[in-house]
């Protein structure tokens, strides 16, 4: 009885914080934990039943790992996994580097009011949906009306059929992703930089360090824990590609599939054709399990290097 009273008193003391956590916790419960038993769909051949969704799950037959074979035995399997992992690796490395770079620059700019204006401008792309961004890209890359082809024609070169040539798209997709994510990502690193104790810089200046040395030796090492945590979290998502980026921006052009097809778009197109729910659940489960294993492994490696910077 006494421990119950103590527990109630702790809850009462932290009531404000608990109420702040409540919406996020309810969202997680409803959308992440409640649907989790649906994972069994990955091992069943789902058939629509007249008695409703749950009856359909119960009445469908078990097929073991046959749904996973669709992912691995298809001739595109190597291409989609290669695309997903390589694109995500480039996104993680370049995205983190650029976000940190931009955060440091924003922090060091002398005019603070202008710095806030720049930051607000950089924020904007994050809040746009990929459909809108795909039309931005179209206004630049359209064959007859686009800005890039107008520039090429002005300088006498031939216009390029951007939506048919595959060799430009790795660069286009990386640039568009960085354009959308660097502004928002830099906020986290900026918050970490602002939290660094000013006396470190004063001591360094007394010892004769110039600005570049201060940035390299104080700022970057002090925000390294934040960088490592964001890196570990990003590695966990390396098998999950941003669907909007790879489906909307190339405008679902068939000629570009070898460079823009990733696991998510492959499953989506397969689902459109066959309507097989079990197959897409299997793909999602595969991505989640691989991501989980990667997060545990990466955290283990980081803990071996520096115990305090690990996530858990």
């Amino acid at each position: 009885m006494g421990s119950l009273m103590r527990w109630l008193r702790t809850v009462n003391r932290n009531m404000a914080l608990l109420i702040m956590v409540l919406p996020g916790a309810v969202w997680f419960l409803l959308f992440c934990y409640l649907p989790m038993p649906g994972v069994i769909l990955a091992f069943k051949n789902y058939r629509f039943s007249r008695d409703g969704f749950l009856a359909g799950i119960i009445q469908s037959e078990w097929v073991g790992f046959k749904n996973f074979e669709y992912l691995f035995k298809t001739e595109d399997a190597y291409i989609i996994v290669r695309n997903t992992v390589l694109y995500n690796a480039v996104f993680i490395v370049l995205g983190t580097a650029l976000s940190v770079f931009v955060a440091i620059l924003i922090h060091e700019i002398a005019n603070k009011k202008l710095a806030k204006i720049y930051q607000t401008g950089m924020f904007l792309p994050h809040f746009l949906s990929w459909v809108i961004v795909s039309y931005f890209v179209f206004s630049f890359l359209s064959v007859d009306k686009g800005v890039l082809n107008q520039l090429l024609r002005y300088f006498g070169a031939d216009p390029v059929y951007w939506y048919s040539e595959t060799k430009y798209w790795p660069f286009i997709l990386v640039i568009v992703y960085l354009w959308k994510s660097v502004g928002y990502g830099s906020v986290i690193y900026l918050a970490a930089i602002v939290g660094i104790d000013k006396s470190y810089y004063e001591a360094a200046m007394i010892d004769g360090a110039n600005k570049w040395q201060q940035i390299c030796r104080i700022t970057v090492p002090m925000i390294m824990p934040v960088i490592v945590i964001m890196f570990i979290l990003a590695i966990g998502g390396i098998f999950r590609a941003d669907f909007g980026l790879f489906y909307q921006v190339p405008r679902d052009t068939g000629a570009l599939y070898p460079v823009t097809n990733v696991i998510d778009t492959f499953v989506y197109r397969g689902l459109k054709v066959t309507g097989d729910i079990g197959m897409s659940t299997a793909a999602g489960l595969y991505q989640a399990v691989v991501g989980f294993v990667l997060v545990i492994t990466t955290n283990f490696i980081v803990r071996k290097i520096n115990k305090e910077q690990a996530l858990f």
Partner: peptide, 20 residues
Amino acid sequence: LAHLAIGLFSFSCVYPFLFV
């Protein structure tokens, strides 16, 4: 230089919106 770099990047983030 920092003003130029960040200003250009920030402008490039806002420009497509105005353009459209």
